[in-house]
Nucleic acid binder design. Structure first.
Lengths: 245, 245
DNA sequence: TATTATTGTAACATTATGTTACAATAAGGC
DNA sequence: GCCTTATTGTAACATAATGTTACAATAATA
């Protein structure tokens, strides 16, 4: 089919064997301590904060690239990913932050280096189990950490609006696609799940209706033991039933 | 911002001032005679049929490009467009049909011409008033015509699955986004509208429930005159009320 | 003028969702 | 140990949305 051979994983340097003008930006959602979190990259020298992202190898499927990119930042496999929008306005990229970073990394570049040209960004959102993630910086950004969704700082380029759009998509998908559990640990109480829903949708839900609806889906199974620790009746623990996963 | 000047509309030839590796494919839906239709391009010499598509100027917004592309094929302005998915598998493009077309158009090319390389395609669907469209071929395909959705032939590359995905998106959006009227003429009966819904969703709906729901949305207004022509009670004509449009 | 097909809408049935209420109970304080 | 507290599981009822049946109204045709 092609004369090219598969490219090795280019973790040590900014490779050149990528499609130009195209990038993937990932909004990686986690949930912890009653808060939605996003994983963000920071270039400490200039303080630039950005979404984790990456490029597409010339012989790599788009979804595979998204998987690889999120995998590299989280250390996880089999990640729930949803492609939600393409950000393609001319002028959305300010080349200056990238220029600074290239300079700081000692990478030779003139003004028409492909990394400084216009990019069209394909937005993916990922839902991960916060407790399982081991954030890893990349070659460009020297830190990688969780931020409360409500406390996201000013980001590079249009990344703030990418997060906004990802959140909207997540809200829409929540009822249709039954994906919230990707943000939970294996076992949880209905109360936990309700708090997650309330946090994502940013509104209070009535407990009886929520429980009836969720249990009515028939995708949860009770675990033998109950949760204990609170000064009140112990709630059941649930997990998602095997045939559903 | 940039030294480049805006590019003239390149209708006479396949220009070079486009982003490489990126394309837009448009699924243009119409509705006529109780059938959903899609506008398709055909290269008569080899019989290749494909979705209308195009490229993105280096200084053009993505949505503007989609608008331009659909505008050029339909002759319409202010088109309802929805970006629905990006098709980015490696190996989705078979370069041969394009090679034949370039040759037939007398365009010099070797095997690594950018038009023969891998493309990532951004899928848009458009909803248009069938009766208003004047299909126009482009420089590559010498015919442009409506096809019944149920009678779409084998298309170039993965265009059949692009149509499939567009249809799924349209079905999902139908209830949420209230967009069906983009496929109707200005005035129509509730019966017409119901047939459209039934055709899109591919299932029968019960008339009283459908009418109650649609009228309950409060976005229709009755037109003074009624429709006549059938040997039965004349139905009211409706149009979408101004404040809604 | 009767027939036919289809419309507009009422009425009722069923299901889904919103809301109130209350007994059950794990942990902590006394 | 026993009472208090907070929260759970679930029943019961209220309201809203949707599914279904029924029927009078009427434009064209014979």
């Amino acid at each position: 089919m092609s004369k090219d051979k598969p490219v090795e994983n280019e973790t040590g340097a900014i490779g050149t064997n990528f499609m130009h003008g195209l990038a993937i930006d990932a909004v990686i959602f986690g949930f912890h301590d009653h808060q939605l979190k996003v994983l963000l990259m920071r270039y400490n020298k200039t303080g630039v904060v950005a979404l984790p992202g990456g490029f597409i190898h010339k012989i790599e499927n788009l979804n595979d690239a998204a998987n690889r990119i999120v995998s590299e930042r989280t250390g996880l496999q089999d990640i729930y990913l949803e492609q939600f929008y393409v950000f393609g306005d001319y002028g959305r990229s300010d080349p200056q932050p990238m220029k600074d970073i290239l300079t700081a990394n000692g990478i030779e570049h003139d003004d028409d280096h492909w990394l400084l040209q216009r990019f069209i960004s394909i937005g993916y959102y990922a839902l991960v189990d916060f407790t399982k993630v081991v954030p890893k910086p990349d070659t460009i950004f020297d830190s990688c950490a969780w931020y409360d969704l409500t406390g996201v700082p000013q980001l590079m380029q249009d990344h703030n609006s990418i997060i906004q759009k990802a959140l909207e998509s997540l809200r829409n998908d929540l009822d249709n696609k039954l994906i919230a559990f990707n943000l939970m640990q294996e076992e949880f109480t209905l109360g936990d799940l309700q708090i997650l829903y309330e946090t994502i949708l940013d509104k209070k839900l009535l407990r009886p209706a929520f429980q009836r609806k969720i249990l009515g889906l028939g995708i949860l199974e009770r675990v033998a033991k109950k949760w204990t620790g609170g000064a009140h009746k112990a709630p059941y623990l649930y997990r998602f039933s095997k045939p559903f996963l």
